[in-house]
Nucleic acid binder design. Sequence first.
DNA 1: CAATAGCCAAATGTATCCAAAATCTTCCAG
DNA 2: CTGGAAGATTTTGGATACATTTGGCTATTG
Lengths: 213, 213
Amino acid sequence: MASSAPSRVVETLREEILNGTLVPGERLRQEDIALRFGASRQPVRDALRQLEGDGLITMVANAGAWVSKLSERECYEAYQMRERLEPLLLSHSIPNLTGQQIKRLSDLVRDIENSHDIEQFLRLDREFHLLSYSGAEPGMLREFVERIWNTTQHYRRAYVKLSGLASSEVTHLEHKLILDGIVHGDAVQAGQALEGHIRRTRITLSQHKEIFS
Amino acid sequence: MASSAPSRVVETLREEILNGTLVPGERLRQEDIALRFGASRQPVRDALRQLEGDGLITMVANAGAWVSKLSERECYEAYQMRERLEPLLLSHSIPNLTGQQIKRLSDLVRDIENSHDIEQFLRLDREFHLLSYSGAEPGMLREFVERIWNTTQHYRRAYVKLSGLASSEVTHLEHKLILDGIVHGDAVQAGQALEGHIRRTRITLSQHKEIFS
DNA sequence: CAATAGCCAAATGTATCCAAAATCTTCCAG
DNA sequence: CTGGAAGATTTTGGATACATTTGGCTATTG
């Protein structure tokens, strides 16, 4: 059975926002989307509300829907939240990670280091971090973390484009430290490395305010 | 101008979930709600999606909507998140609180101590904490914290009902410490007191698993 | 007597149509 | 030439009607 119309719309639009096809500030017309998916406007409205709930788009009554934008302050705040939430989530996840998953994490660290195109880097980096959380039970904490990742994705891409892949030497070291903590089941080490990883990214990001113009 | 139909529905249902009129697990039929608000089912569906985005209700395709339930584990997790997010939010808020607001916070600490019925206690306690955050800029952090408060409200009520107001002696002391930090503009003191406050509540709650049956 | 298949009622999902609001265009006045 | 106001166009909001799905009830059968 094919999933419902609204969920197909949600999935597709979410993907397009995350991969940069749709950029922050871009308007989403209900009619256009309905036409594109061969559906009427009701399921589209449903889908837009869901995306709004995920923070990916912003709706204004009697006006329309736009892909959400973050100010530099909001992005800074998002990273402060990540610093506090992700080590917690990782500590919930580590005890439940399987050998297979840890192997994949290890491969990802290597592939990230060897990646030479920006989209690939972003995709692998995202997979590494989110996979490292996959041992945690589903719940609010995982939802929140994923939501922060989604709403900041565009600015992460903008930053990597700006500074280039070459400058991510420290990132690779941090990934190795996190992985080492995971491998040894040491949530404290992994958590501290992760916190530092996010913290450094936050500070670096705040030195490139031009991303938010 | 009266606000739109969906927002009226959202406001009313949110209020009823928070004040306990609607309890976790209770079903919400679109037709009933539409009839009650003198609207059609479309605005109601819109409203339900928004409430789902707030985490207050859970929707299942082709089945219906229910007031969200938290397991004991999820509630514990929610409090762990509060411990990490609320001190951060408070530190953003403190520099911007006005004299009037601080006066109100001070009055609230006194009124909470003198409150004689459970609903009043819950209302004042909620106002105290959320008001202490009102100096912070709007954004994801404030939204997340409010969302956690909303989804755990029912279990807070259940706990207070179980243990009675008499047992909240320590709570009052903690409120005074938080207030003292705020009055002196000391975000570190206020934050530590707040973290302990939430942490103690989390531990106490986890000793009453019968709330989650 | 228990179990399963099929039918029926109730609730949700979708499409179409109309109304209301916002934006954009155009035209006029200063 | 600029600013603003009024009308036209576009887009969203809401209601009614119809389709689809679900869950339970009943009846039939092993």
